[in-house]
Design a protein around this nucleic acid. Structure first.
Length: 170
DNA sequence: CCACGGTGGTAGA
DNA sequence: TCTACCACCGTGG
């Protein structure tokens, strides 16, 4: 029996003034980003094991995270591995990437953009399943009438990110 | 403010 | 398959 293909992930720390995020990489690119956890729960230190390719990606990740946390537009992203998502989720995530820093869209607007205007609630679900928050800017999706809506990483993060981009909430 | 109905996608059983 | 969730949205108290 042929064993299922292993899907090795390399985890690297993204140290910022707001805490240490954890990026994880597949062979295709950045596949996940976790918000800082409360305690200094074992930061990955496999830096020396990662290939030059991954280290290059990681440099792009670090600067992109820093820029987004500062409320600025990101210049360049590493390749993103979004294979974990369904077709619907990838459509939503793709639409999210087109929202510029400082701008917002509603869940309904995203649903319309992907040609499925009644799938409003499902759009919320896809945002919650976003494996790369901050860089795939799901925090820029608000409920109708500029209400905050939800955020899987905690509403404090969503408010912080939006405030740094100069977005006002209702 | 709250309740509710109409919705579509997902995961799990 | 069926079903129970849901980061929604409008309407109506």
């Amino acid at each position: 029996v042929i064993s299922k293909t292993e899907n090795p992930r390399i985890k690297l720390p993204v140290k910022t003034a707001d805490g240490t995020f954890i990026a994880n990489y597949s062979e295709k690119g950045l596949a996940g980003l976790q918000f800082p956890e409360d305690k200094a729960s074992r930061e990955p230190d496999e830096t020396e094991k990662s290939s030059a390719k991954v280290q290059g990606w990681h440099r792009l990740t670090v600067s992109a995270v820093e820029q987004t946390l500062a409320g600025k537009a990101t210049r360049k992203l590493p390749p993103l591995d979004l294979d974990s998502g369904t077709d619907f989720q990838r459509q939503v995530w793709s639409a999210l990437q087109k929202i510029e820093a400082g701008k917002t869209r509603s869940y309904l607007e995203i649903a319309k953009l992907i040609g499925n205007p009644r799938a409003v609630r499902a759009v919320g679900g896809a945002c919650g399943a976003n494996p790369i928050p901050v860089l795939i800017p799901c925090h820029r999706v608000l409920a109708a009438n500029h209400k905050i809506g939800g955020f899987s990483g905690g509403l404090d993060w969503k408010r912080t990110l939006l405030a740094r981009e100069g977005v006002k909430l209702r």
